[in-house]
Amino acid sequence: MQLTNRSKVVSNKVQTAMEQLYLPGILKGMLITGSHLFKRRATVKYPEETRPVAAVYRGWHVLKRDENGAERCTACGLCAVACPAEAITMESAERKKGEEGLYREEKYAKIYEINMLRCIFCGLCEEACPKEAIFLTDRLVDTEYEREDFVYGKSKLTEKIDKRIDVSKRQTLEVAEFKKLPGLKHNEMWEGKNLNKGNKH
């Protein structure tokens, strides 16, 4: 009785004399494996070589500084609110006299931490930021030995004054216009472009 139409007739084929010799079959198999000697390897030898990433790749975050080298972040917490993975924590502090060169506005982030194991690199923090302070970059997050080492503090997030990071690929014209913000001065893309029309900032 046939229960389903998926049954198959099993082949109990007897080997021919040629097949019983095995040697032709073995040689055929060896030629197949041998042909792989000349095939392209898929391996990317990572630290030396890197896989090409998209121009707008979302990786290791950066906390931007303004053209004078002062931190743009005012610790408003909108990025932490926007973060769906709850990876961002911060603690704010008031700027003291004489720190005008360090912090752009009266309030700044004393502690700013992103847990890179929680982060899903969605870029919502960047979208939420009203001060154009946080951006995702195309840098890959480092490997670490301990879980705690993946909690990146300001030392790993804030850009160095002498080593500015270009984020013009991610700071799109549309977004900047929508936010009614001038472009970050050091981003070459903004050179000669006047976006300050109707800027109340």
């Binding site: 041998g34 792989h36 392209r40 390897r41 391996t43 030898k45």
Partner: peptide
């Protein structure tokens, strides 16, 4: 073995 299996 690596070469035969397209590895490095």
């Amino acid at each position: 073995s690596a070469l035969l299996q397209d590895r490095v």
